[in-house]
Design a protein around this nucleic acid. Structure first.
Lengths: 219, 219
DNA sequence: AGTTAGATTTAGGCATTCCTAAATTCTTAA
DNA sequence: TTAAGAATTTAGGAATGCCTAAATCTAACT
């Protein structure tokens, strides 16, 4: 039997796995805010179920079975976020926590009816790709705003959705997926960035800018 | 901390409590399909939390605090059922199980937005009353179809929503809340009832009829 | 009143999922 | 090459929520 906690682990491994193939115990522990010991314990159980491969001290890699479950959960999460915003009228910053709870609980039919009501979308409100029913998630590795040269412009593709407070801040600034930002100036020594979004200028800290993912502006 | 399991117990006690004030351990165990021992264990915990009063062998009674939580869960459940049918297009028979899972997980905001989308309704698709935000549930004790005299007509008020198969059967027969039924004849010795619903006649077993709650037809 | 059937509680166990602390293994740099 | 330090695993323990089996209580009938 697969539990909610297991689904959370699989989802986390899947999202951490993008890029590298192996994910370390400590990376999972940090991301999920549990102890490394707890991670080891759960990993062994998931390995015994054939949902991931792992060798002691070597890190973890999802099997096809594990990937499929992770994709399913991520699809639930992102469809829920979009449904909550588009159909139910939630604000941007509240949908992540609600979706984190609901994603483990909804039926396939619920998923299907949400997708239908939304016209089978492919992107959630934070700009993340929504995996197709049985398809892989194709997330492109965008640069963060901190990596954009002073003077250049870029288009916001997606933002991290973990921190509601930061989301409200993005909303205030107009840093939504699709928005065009110009990096007017970058302070040296890890100081703030000066941005121009929609005519208005703002100063934004490096930590904040690191959570905004952009592609070069298409002109 | 109040868990999902505790909420389920409180909900069950609340619904069993209608009519009598005291609810027995075995009644709870039977309704929830767990052992009586499990019920005892949970009851002691809930009593320690001040959510219900109980004395050994004497049965159980919810406190005001316990009632409040139970009402909240029942409100969630019934709003969810209605939302799933009216807004999402689920069929009658599938909403109970979905609502049983979601009722523990949704936020107050989710509840509020559902209620709004539905125009703040007071009855769910099975004819059960939806408790107001902070108000008590006022379920009227209707008669079942088995208690209606042969020759008399009655109006369906609500039906039991526990068994999806039975719900599909009710749907087929047209035994929906609001429908007018005439009991044409009753076989003696606990045999089937002959019903006339919407011009058509049907034979219905006693067990089935016992799950249809009616009031005398208002003519 | 005594017996007995049924209801209830107690006792002991198991799985889940987390924790801290201690032991082990790996890495790296002197 | 070895020894410190970091990462990982093992060990042991707590809370939850279920179970079965055994003990105990209640109520009903002779």
């Amino acid at each position: 039997m697969i539990t909610h906690a297991m689904e959370d682990y699989l989802k986390t491994v899947y999202l951490l796995q993008e890029g590298q193939e192996k994910v370390s115990t400590s990376a999972i522990a940090q991301q999920m805010e549990v102890s490394a010991a707890s991670v080891t314990g759960m990993i062994r159980k998931l390995a015994a179920m054939g949902l991931l491969n792992y060798a002691s001290y070597q890190g973890v890699e999802l099997t096809e079975g594990g990937k499929k479950i992770a994709q399913e959960i991520i699809r639930h999460h992102r469809l829920l976020e979009l449904y909550l915003v588009e159909i139910m009228g939630f604000t941007w910053d509240k949908v992540h926590d609600e979706a984190d709870k609901l994603e483990h609980v909804i039926s396939e039919e619920f998923e299907e009816r949400m997708s239908e009501a939304l016209g089978h979308p492919t992107t959630d409100p934070h700009g993340h790709a929504i995996p197709a029913k049985d398809g892989a998630l194709q997330e492109i590795a965008y640069a963060t705003l901190t990596e954009v040269d002073a003077g250049s412009s870029a288009t916001v593709q997606h933002v991290n959705d973990n921190d509601p407070e930061m989301l409200r801040y993005f909303d205030q600034l107009g840093l939504l997926p699709g928005a065009v930002v110009q990096v007017v100036a970058k302070e040296p020594f890890n100081g703030p960035l000066r941005l121009k979004v929609d005519q208005t200028e703002h100063f934004v800290g490096r930590e904040v800018a690191g959570n905004v993912f952009v592609s070069p502006q298409i002109t």
